[in-house]
Amino acid sequence: MKKENKRSRRSLAWALVPISLVIGILLWTALVNLGGLPAFILPPPALVWGRFQQALADGSLVRHVWVTLQEVVLGLFLGVLAASALGYLLAKSRRLERALAPYVVASQSVPIVAIAPLLVIWFGPGLFSKVLISALIVFFPVLINTVVGLHSVPHDLRDLMRSLRAGRWQTFRLLELPSSMPVFLGGLRIGATLSVIGAVVGEFVGADRGLGFLINVGRGEYDTALVFVAVFTLIAMALALYGLVVWLETRLLWWQHKPRETNLVGD
């Protein structure tokens, strides 16, 4: 009974997505027509769609998407790798945590937009500086969630592993990794969307390719439809990445998803 209710509610929610999209596009068209806005301020959906097909046909969109995608994936990968490794060390050592805390916090309070030009000056306008900027912006939330996740491992389970004389690696593999996974993946969710922002910021500052570059070009040429195409592509990219993490969550945290209903009662 309960389950059926839930399922029908979920299918309703999915039906709402195309409906709201259609309504959005209609409103957008109405705004352009009624407001008499010129295309370089707000291009009508049809124009954006045409521009999209054109960019697709001449291969430019795919080329720029590929560049940005590389930056995003590499940045995310590097950022997560560095953050989880450092996070593990920080969680293991109170002293290290205390010593590095000021740097970690300071690194977070510097706006990424402000240091992006520096990184482009230092590392050139190519792929590497974008990867670095993306990795930097990913770093903090993943680091924090790694530390919090490891601190949230129940003490009694740690004692159990200790009483079984489990080694460092065994404790990590059998206890710390699965136990901190929910919190860690929460950080990865945030990191995944931020990685796209990082890459685009980098491209804004200095690049000759990528979706951020495409936005700059569109703006310069009053080709607003092209800007829209690039923005929508970025949104799609961020959504896809986010979806990937959510999928990973359902795969890795199956043991958590199932008992949600009993949790309401049991806790």
Partner: peptide
Amino acid sequence: IGLVFQDANLMPWRTVLENIALPLEV
């Protein structure tokens, strides 16, 4: 030495059988 805590202290991601086998696995 076998230890039993006040709360069952099981690993929620392991099945009953896997929880019981944990000491052997370690």
